[in-house]
């Protein structure tokens, strides 16, 4: 019952990579099993929890709902690509300083989604932050410190705007 494999070529965190995958292998599994990038976590495999969120061609996606074979030619960014060597990104640092994580399992998904949000042209308000990040589940923090961490990073990056309504 050997399934034929296909070689997928794509860019992950700026590096050209190749992976041999069966068509049914999810993009998340391809990253984890073939490319050994295990920072992308699988929490539900049906698109609800958001732990596996990564950035593909500039858009946030659930890597459990894409097949690796669909990533041919794609530009992929994962949590492993956020830091610049020893220097954490402002968002990573804010999660650390504001205690935005406890067990850390959901953290890569939150970091990737929030990274994407902070790179968009529109400013971040608390309303937008909660709207976008309500995509992902965290079971430890009660979200309070995730909101505070993303807010702090947005302010540091000059992306923050106070909500119109108090």
């Amino acid at each position: 019952m050997s399934e034929p494999k296909v070689t997928v070529c794509c860019t992950v965190n700026g590096q050209k990579v190749e992976a041999d995958v069966v068509p049914r292998m999810s993009l998340a599994d391809m990253l984890r099993e073939e490319l050994h990038l295990t920072g992308t976590h699988l929490g539900c495999e049906h698109g609800v929890c958001g732990a596996c969120t990564i950035i593909v061609n500039g858009a946030p996606v659930r890597s459990c709902l894409m097949f690796g074979i669909q990533a041919e030619g794609a530009e992929i960014r994962t949590v492993e690509g956020l830091a610049d060597g020893d220097t954490l990104s402002p968002l990573q640092r804010a999660f650390w300083e504001k205690h935005g994580l406890q067990c850390g399992f959901c953290t890569p998904g939150f970091l990737m989604l929030a990274t994407w949000m902070l790179e968009q042209p529109e400013p971040v308000t608390e309303e937008r932050l909660r709207h976008v990040l309500s995509s992902n589940l965290c079971r430890c923090t009660g979200y309070t410190n995730i909101v505070r961490a993303v807010t702090a990073a947005a302010k540091e990056m000059g992306k923050w705007a106070e909500s119109a309504a108090a």
Binding site: R32, E33, H36, L37, T38, G39, T40, H41, L42, T78, V79, E80, L82, A83, L88, Q92, F95, W96, E97, H99, L101, G104, F105, T107, P108, L111
Partner: peptide, 25 residues
């Protein structure tokens, strides 16, 4: 004191080691 956690630098880099990571292969 609010010491930032010693656990976190690895976790925010996606360098934690959870069972599924150890199970690969």
């Amino acid at each position: 004191r609010n010491i930032p956690r010693l656990e976190d630098p690895a976790l925010v880099r996606g360098e934690g080691r959870f069972v599924a990571d150890i199970a690969v292969g």
